[in-house]
Amino acid sequence: MNDTISVTIKVWRQENPDAPGRFETHPQEITTDASFLEMLDLLNEQLNDRGEEPIVFESDCREGICGTCGLMINGRAHGPQKATATCQLHMREFEDGDEIVIEPFRAAGFPVIRDLAVDRSPLDHIIESGGFISVGSGAAPDANLTPVAREAAEKAFDAAACIGCGACVAACPNSAAQLFTSAKVGHMALLPQGQPERWSRTEAMVEVMESYFGSCTNHGECHEACPKEISLDFIAYLNRDYVKAKVKNRALSGQR
C-alpha cells in the first residue's frame, strides 16, 4: 500500500492579478499515502530550501468541509476522484510517471490573486443579498413548535451540505454559479422557516449571481465536480421559483 511514485508537476505561477502567468515544471517523488496537498507542502519545502518562493495555494480544514481548497487538477475541478475535495485527494489516485497539471480555479468571477489562490468573494455577496432567514437573536419560538416533515428536512440538508468551494463555477463552461445559488435557495425554500422571504430571497440572490457569473445551460459539469454531489434538481427548483418570484414580487402581493 505504501509505494513511492515519480510524477511531473506542471504548476501555474502568477505574481499578482495583473501579471501574466506561466507554468513551472517540477519533478516530484512522493509516497502514495500522502495527500495531494501534502505533496504540494513537500514541494514548497523543497522550493524554500532552494531559495525559491513557495507556491501559494489555499487550504484550511483539510477534511473536505471548509471549502477553502480548490484546484484544477488535469483540467478537473478538485481532480479525478468523485465527491472529493482537493484536500481529501490522495496520491494513490495517480500512477508512476504521470504528468499532473495544476491550475487555479478558472472563472471570470474568480480573479486570480496569486499562483493558485483566487478571489471567491462574489459567493459571499450572493449570500449577503438574501441567503438568510431574518430572525434576530432571542426572537425564535420553541424549536419543536413547527414540525418539519422528515423528507423535507432531509432534502433541505442535501442542499445545505454545500461547502461553498466554487468548484461548480470552475467546472462550468459558462462559469455559472447556479448550483451554489440553488443549493442555498433550495435549502431555505424547503423549510417552513424559509417561507416568509422565499420569493424576495430567490429574486435577489439570482440577480446578484447574474451580476458576477455566466448563465446556466444545463451542462451538468457542476454536479460532476461537486465534492458534496449537490443535485442538479436544485437548479430546476431555482428556475421554477425564480419565475414564480417574478410574478409574486410584483405589486400584487395581495393576490398571492
Binding site: 438568510f132 432567514i133 430572525v135 437573536s137 432571542g138 426572537a139 425564535a140 419560538p141 420553541d142 424549536a143 413547527t146 414540525p147 418539519v148 422528515r150 428536512a153 432531509e154 433541505a156 440538508f157 445545505a160 435549502h187 431555505m188 423549510l191 422557516q193 424559509g194
Partner: peptide, 13 residues
Amino acid sequence: IDQATAQGVPFAR
C-alpha cells in the same frame, strides 16, 4: 436550539 432551528439549521428529525 430554538435560534438555530429558526435560522433554518436542518437538525435531524
